[in-house]
Design a protein around this nucleic acid. Structure first.
Lengths: 113, 113
DNA sequence: AATACAAGTAACTTACAGGTAACCAGTTTT
DNA sequence: AAAACTGGTTACCTGTAAGTTACTTGTATT
């Protein structure tokens, strides 16, 4: 039982448990409209380790935000793309980004140092 | 130095560092258009301890999302309300909530269990 | 003289997201 | 026969958000 406090009373927390992680919004945004390979994602987001990337992709797949296609080739090839539900998140991510840009740019610089 | 990876390349992460916590969206939503006292907030959100509530309020104040007014009375009285910037977050929170309701309601039930 | 009230603070603990480094399989290239 | 390629897995470690419990302050009430 995960420690989420009453998801029925806080749908925001529920959504946050999806996109609130450090990497998920970045990954979703990187995939975008493309069909993209594991290695390519790893290149686009160099700061993520392949273990973490692998985990995140697995979780996103479980949540039906992305789908995974495995080609039976050698060396292996796997491609990821957004589902309809995943795509529906993109505009929301953009709004979050916008809000951050217009409301926080300066403030956060101080805070983060 | 906080471990936020390159906020200039991920404004979503930047916004998340504000509202991505467990309690901040709930608190903002509870304050809403009202001017509200510490104790009242604690009643509205019984699951939060006063230490954590106190921390969150302090952080929200530092980010200029809320403002704090202290009345020099006994027993003490302190009121919190949203700033302009804080109010601008509310519609965004609603969209997040909506997305969660329409896209995740059933899925998450399985996952949480 | 004890207790309640509001709005916290202090000290300590815990859970878990995220990080690191090494390793795997099966084929192709050097 | 060693190394490289891809898409991971395994085992282990760490930092920090969040939680718990007890305490404080100055008056008023019982």
């Amino acid at each position: 039982m995960r420690a989420i406090t009453n998801p029925y009373q806080c749908p925001v927390t529920r959504t946050m448990s999806i996109i609130g992680g450090k990497w998920k919004p970045i990954i979703l945004n990187c995939i975008g409209e493309k069909s993209i390979r594991f290695g390519k994602l790893n290149q686009l987001i160099p700061a993520i380790s392949n273990k973490v990337l692998s985990n995140e992709l697995k979780e996103l797949e479980e949540l039906s935000l992305i789908e995974r296609e495995e080609f039976k080739e050698l060396p292996p090839r796997v491609e990821y793309r957004l589902t309809r539900s995943g795509k529906s998140l993109i505009p929301l991510l953009h709004e979050l980004a916008n809000w951050g840009n217009t409301n926080l740019a300066k403030k956060i610089e101080k805070t983060i140092q």
